[in-house]
């Protein structure tokens, strides 16, 4: 199934990348749970989007299914919309 068995170094790099990104996701989860203020949690959303893009890319390298890059495009767009929406929402809540 994997397309990387001919290259051991690439195989190692893919699993190393999976491990690193998973550790990073748990670090983001820690900040999401203990973040003192609401902007801290919104910032973590940005980080998690980047990490998910990284996970998708690593999965593409593992399986060779390049169609999953569409998911990365959609996530990169959606997280921007989410940031803007959160900023507007917080600003409106401040003005009231």
């Amino acid at each position: 199934m994997t397309s990387t068995e001919a290259y051991p170094i690439l195989n190692f790099a893919i699993y190393f990348s999976f491990a690193t990104l998973t550790i990073s996701l748990f670090a983001g989860l820690y900040r999401l749970l203990t973040g003192p203020s609401l902007p801290d949690r919104i910032v973590v959303m940005d980080l998690v989007a980047s990490l998910v893009i990284g996970l998708i890319i690593t999965y593409i390298m593992l399986t060779g299914q390049t169609v999953y890059l569409n998911v990365a495009v959609a996530i990169a767009l959606l997280v921007f919309m989410g940031n803007i929406a959160f900023a507007k929402y917080l600003k409106r809540r401040l003005d009231q």
């Binding site: 609401l38 902007p39 890059l69 495009v73 990169a76 921007f80 940031n83 803007i84």
Partner: peptide, 30 residues
């Protein structure tokens, strides 16, 4: 598609961070 993702990340990440930073300054985050 990779170039599209790079462009989105480069252009949208500073804008979002800028807006969140302004709002958190107005919220008087410590």
């Amino acid at each position: 598609e990779a170039l599209m993702v790079v462009m989105f990340v480069i252009f949208t990440s500073p804008i979002g961070a800028h807006m969140i930073a302004r709002v958190s300054h107005r919220m008087k985050v410590p």
